[in-house]
């Protein structure tokens, strides 16, 4: 029993690199399975709307825009990133990406519409 038991540890830290990650300067890499921003493959979608049904927060809306053509409106402000929609989707039309830097100054920019402009599913911002 003595005071200052952590003395050796703290003095050792002076010569060690700080554990702090200087975030905006040093980027963090998320693991592969990370559930970040959603990605929608419009070409694969069959419009069953299971994702809409299972979403706990109603963050995803699938609209029919043409014959067998669909678009998805994802509200990133509502999304809780549980990726249940990815599990629910029978055709793998949704995917969780590693993207975590989603902060926006304008709330409207958090609403993202995915429409089928090219096979990749081009992202356009909706205001």
């Amino acid at each position: 029993m003595r005071p200052g038991k952590m003395m050796r540890q703290v003095l050792g830290s002076i010569f060690k690199k700080p554990a702090t990650i200087l975030y905006p300067a040093a980027k963090l890499e998320m693991p592969d399975k990370f559930r970040g921003k959603l990605k929608y493959y419009a070409a694969a979608c069959i419009g069953c709307k299971l994702c809409m049904k299972d979403c706990p927060t109603g963050a995803i809306i699938i609209n029919k825009v043409g014959d067998k053509q669909f678009e998805a409106i994802i509200d990133l402000a509502r999304c809780i990133y549980c990726a249940q929609c990815v599990d629910s989707c029978p055709k793998k039309a949704l995917e969780a990406t590693k993207d975590v830097e989603l902060a926006q100054l304008d709330e409207k920019r958090l609403k993202i519409t995915f429409t089928l402009n090219d096979p990749e599913g081009k992202v356009t911002e909706q205001t």
Binding site: V10, L11, S13, I14, K16, P18, A19, T20, L22
Partner: peptide, 9 residues
Amino acid sequence: YARLQNRVG
């Protein structure tokens, strides 16, 4: 204080 706590400070 920060460096002793392994922080940047």
